[in-house]
């Protein structure tokens, strides 16, 4: 009996010692080595791909932002149509009981998705509402509204929109900024990224980079 207790204790100690020494290797040395190499060789990406404009950081080019002008009476943000709009986030699920709710409005510290099912009637309603809003706001038929304009992303921080969604925003954005539409259209073309190596992922437009370029254009005109 005594013997077996002693053996068990010895075994558990061995388990703990193994864990501690492997923690030093995998939990201390490994992340520090990777961080060292990363900070030396790729400081820009390792620190969040920050985008600067006129000497000021305007965000991370990998993370989406909102472009609003204040809030309405219900507390919902009003999109500022001077700028290209990202994928919707108003339709994001509240994930009712999660505190705080999962990503209400491109909040960098609450990433997450709506998690609503493909046949969920709430999701159906938010898709239909979004479609109607996009069609009326930008003066296009509903059939031209692309899917990314009416659905929320997986991270809730999607930095990109499809080239189609950017394209239908061109006229309105140009009008709001008193710019010729062809100049804004050219801007969208310049910021459209094709598939990587021609076949990976989908074509996209980075909204922050596009809006930064747009602001430069507006300032040059003004």
């Amino acid at each position: 009996m005594n013997n077996s207790v002693r053996n068990t204790a010895r075994l558990l100690t061995a388990g703990l010692r193994a864990l501690l020494v492997l923690t030093v290797v995998c939990g201390v040395i490994y992340p520090l080595v990777v961080t060292g190499v990363a900070q030396a060789a790729f400081p820009g990406t390792a620190n969040g791909s920050e985008l600067t404009s006129h000497g000021k950081v305007v965000g991370s080019s990998l993370l989406g932002q909102r472009y609003d002008k204040g809030k309405d009476k219900q507390g919902n943000p009003i999109p500022d149509l001077h700028w290209f709009q990202p994928r919707p986030s108003a339709g994001l699920g509240s994930n009712r009981t999660a505190k705080p709710p999962v990503n209400p409005q491109y909040d960098l510290q609450v990433s997450g998705a709506s998690n609503l099912g493909a046949g969920n009637t709430d999701l159906l309603k938010s898709v239909k509402d979004a479609k109607q809003w996009v069609a009326t706001t930008y003066g296009v038929p509903e059939s031209q509204v692309p899917a990314d304009a009416v659905t929320s992303s997986g991270s809730g921080l999607d930095p990109d929109i499809s080239p189609e969604y950017a394209q239908i925003q061109v006229n309105r954005v140009a009008k709001e900024n008193n710019l010729p539409a062809d100049k804004v259209e050219q801007l969208v073309k310049d910021h459209t990224q094709g598939r990587q190596l021609g076949f990976m992922g989908d074509p996209r437009v980075n909204v922050l980079e596009l809006n930064v370029a747009l602001r430069d254009l507006v300032q040059k005109q003004g």
Binding site: N115, L124, T151
Partner: peptide, 20 residues
């Protein structure tokens, strides 16, 4: 398939633009 995805025109709910 699914009413909401049909209305949207593609299964992009919960998916990122850059991956497709």
């Amino acid at each position: 398939g699914g009413s909401a995805l049909q209305a949207a025109g593609a299964a992009m709910e919960g998916k990122e633009t850059r991956f497709g």
